[in-house]
Nucleic acid binder design. Structure first.
Length: 327
RNA sequence: GCACAGGUGGGUGAGUGGUUAAAGCCGACAGACUGUAAAUCUGUUCCUCCUAGCGAGGUACGGAGGUUCGAAUCCUCCCCUGUGCA
């Protein structure tokens, strides 16, 4: 209808940023590799556990062979004893995005950690970083005075925030209190000043949404394969190297493998517990991603050729300039 | 065959005459999430209807009868499961 406008629009179009999201086991890696190959893409991890070094089998990271197919970023860059945060991730990912843009390659963010993705795209509010001492003090108060204590405290500091957090949700109450005390300002007021969204990209969000039953089957199978092909040994090594049980050792699969190794669960029950945990996690991810704005949902697994075709069509129509370059 | 023990909602498991459609836990489903997020937390969970309420009706504790104003709970018979003895 208005070719001039379309041309103008595409000429000035900001570079495209592709996001691949979906629950664990939905085939994000497979789809990302396909798209990276087809569109000269570079993959950026957005999975909070795949960032940790030495946690390989249980996190279902792409293999070295897979990573050779396209540049991969933000895998294996966090030490197991280090604590990663959404804010730190967002900073680093934005840095990587800037580099990819300067190379004129297509950035593809892949991952299942909803909060990190939101931190990257929408940004976080300008709040203070965490304070371990304060958190420790608050946690000990909870033990003495009960769980309602934090909520009452927050109500005094910042009533609006207190109303948004359930009295039983200690971690979120602690963060809100921490923000109020450290900044000497109400968290709810800081929120009103907004976030710092990512700028300079047109964003295409592709969400993988396979059939629930099929997904659960796949998750069960994958968890079994992890247990049978090295997860237990990997966990054993990590437990010996890091006796303090850093956070990633408490995560899906590792936690149950550790229980098995400590003799707290028989092998079959440990496996079942791990499968259960993965399924529950997948469900929580779907709850999060359903709220993510502007997601184009693909009804299937990321390995399916039909899904590849759908995704490729969506990419081509979203990136006229790159398409022209590609001949 | 005899003797015990037991059969409860998707699972487990309380309940041993009356606010019990039946605790708790698990699962399932749905939701929340602004620096621990593979974390943490919330709600719903027999069926039907509506004026959507601590609303109305229906069905329900292996089966069939019975006792009782009233039964998952007591009695009788039958079926099934586990353990012990033959």
């Amino acid at each position: 209808m208005e070719p001039a406008l379309t041309l103008e629009h595409s000429y000035h179009a900001e570079p495209l940023l592709v996001i691949i999201l979906g629950p664990t086991g939905s085939g994000k890696t497979a789809l990302s590799l396909k798209l990276a190959q087809e569109f000269r893409g570079e993959i950026i991890n957005c999975d909070s556990l795949a960032m940790y070094r030495e946690f390989d089998i249980g996190t279902a990271k792409p293999s070295l062979a897979e990573r050779a197919q396209a540049p991969h970023h933000l895998f294996d860059f966090v030490d197991p004893l280090q604590e990663m945060t959404a804010g730190e991730y967002a900073r680093q990912a934005r840095q990587v995005l800037a580099e990819i843009r300067s190379r004129q390659r297509l950035p593809i963010v892949v991952g299942g950690t909803g909060l990190y993705l939101r931190a990257l795209l929408q940004g976080l509010f300008a709040g203070p970083q965490r304070s371990e001492e304060l958190r420790e003090r608050l946690r000990s108060r909870v033990e003495q005075r009960g769980s309602g204590y934090l909520h009452k405290l927050l109500r005094r500091l910042d009533r609006a925030s207190a109303e948004k957090v359930h009295p039983n949700d200690a971690p979120k109450l602690i963060r809100a209190i921490e923000v109020c005390l450290a900044s000497r300002e109400k968290m709810s007021e800081m929120w009103q000043r907004g976030r710092d969204p990512l700028k300079g990209f047109r964003i295409l969000r592709l969400g993988l949404d396979p059939d629930r039953g099929a997904l659960y089957e796949r998750i069960n199978l994958r968890a079994r394969q992890m247990f049978e092909s090295g997860l237990i040994e990997e966990t054993k090594g990590l437990m010996e190297k890091y006796p303090a049980s850093p956070r990633p050792l408490m995560s899906l699969g590792y936690k149950q493998a550790a229980q098995l190794l400590r003799g707290e669960l028989p092998p079959d029950q440990a496996l079942q517990a791990a499968q259960q945990a993965h399924r529950n996690y997948a469900k929580r991810q779907m709850t999060w991603f359903r709220r993510e704005p502007d997601v184009t949902w693909l009804k299937g697994f990321g390995e399916e050729p039909g899904i590849h075709r759908e995704a490729m069509v969506l990419l081509r129509t979203s990136m006229p300039r790159i398409h022209a370059d590609e001949h």
